[in-house]
């Protein structure tokens, strides 16, 4: 049976290699990918939005609708993961009732977590705020923030981390992230422009046209970062404990 799989894989490889005769050489300045829409984005992005990072502009302004549904895909994947590992008995999710264990893991891990976690969170907020001027933005900052929460959960134990970060249903902030994104778009519709057309914000914020685009991109990136950070941490908690919060482990 495996011989059939190997045959199919080798045939696929030869077919794909036969397609490479048509491809342009990597680095060609006149390849079709570099000629149609990208010159418009490169020439007009700083003029229209005052944001130097063209990737952030294209992601959140010219192709902002795409990014809205990508954020909702992340939210849906988090919900799906929680539902798959859901226990069929009625389980009350009040994390403040969990036993606070004082012993976590290693002493080295705990002390380096105390040193490194505030720096990681500061760096994450820096990356979110500087998405306009350097590589970064909402996604990367949100994942670094989630990584700091995961580091805390690994060093001090999952019940302690849940008591600190998910008290009083704070994980509902993940929905708030997508709501911020769609809310900015809806605000533009209420102010008599199209959905996610950030020019509408210039009356509320009292800035010029271009700075309205810049602020719109900033709000949208904050929404994305909020959703991603909470969902990634929730994925870790549910995968590491298998949704049984009584017997504790990593």
């Amino acid at each position: 049976m495996k011989i059939y799989y190997k045959l199919v894989a080798i045939l696929l490889l030869f077919f794909l290699i036969s397609l490479t005769f048509d491809f342009p050489v990597t680095g060609d300045l006149t390849s079709p990918a570099n000629l149609n829409v990208s010159p418009y984005y490169l020439e007009n992005s700083v003029k229209q939005t005052h944001i130097p990072n063209v990737v952030t502009t294209v992601l959140a302004d010219y192709r902002g609708f795409d990014t809205l549904f990508e954020t909702s895909v992340i939210l849906t994947a988090g919900i799906a993961l929680i539902l798959i590992l859901f226990k069929s008995k009625r389980q009350k999710y009040s994390f403040s009732n969990l036993p606070r264990t004082t012993k976590g893991t290693d002493l080295v891990c705990q002390n380096s977590c105390k040193l490194a976690m505030p720096l990681m969170q500061l760096f994450a907020l820096y990356v979110i705020a500087h998405g306009h001027y350097s590589p970064g933005g909402g996604f990367q900052g949100g994942v670094i923030l989630a990584a700091s929460f995961i580091f805390y959960a690994i060093s001090f134990g999952v019940p302690n981390a849940l008591n600190r970060f998910f008290k009083n249903k704070r994980q509902m902030l993940a929905y708030l992230g997508v709501l911020i994104y769609a809310g900015v778009g809806a605000l533009c519709v209420i102010l008599k422009k199209k959905f996610l057309e950030y020019v509408a914000l210039k009356d509320i914020l009292r800035v010029s046209d271009e700075m309205a685009h810049s602020y719109g991109v900033l709000f949208v990136e904050i929404g994305v970062a909020l959703t991603i950070s909470i969902i990634m941490f929730a994925c870790y908690v549910f995968l590491a404990t298998g949704n049984s919060f009584d017997d504790e482990n990593l």
Partner: peptide
């Protein structure tokens, strides 16, 4: 930008989730 995302997500969160 893509390299930054791949470093955070691919060799950060993805590896941690798999080991967990």
């Amino acid at each position: 930008d893509v390299a930054f995302t791949e470093a955070c997500v691919g060799s950060g969160v993805s590896t941690v989730l798999m080991v967990a």
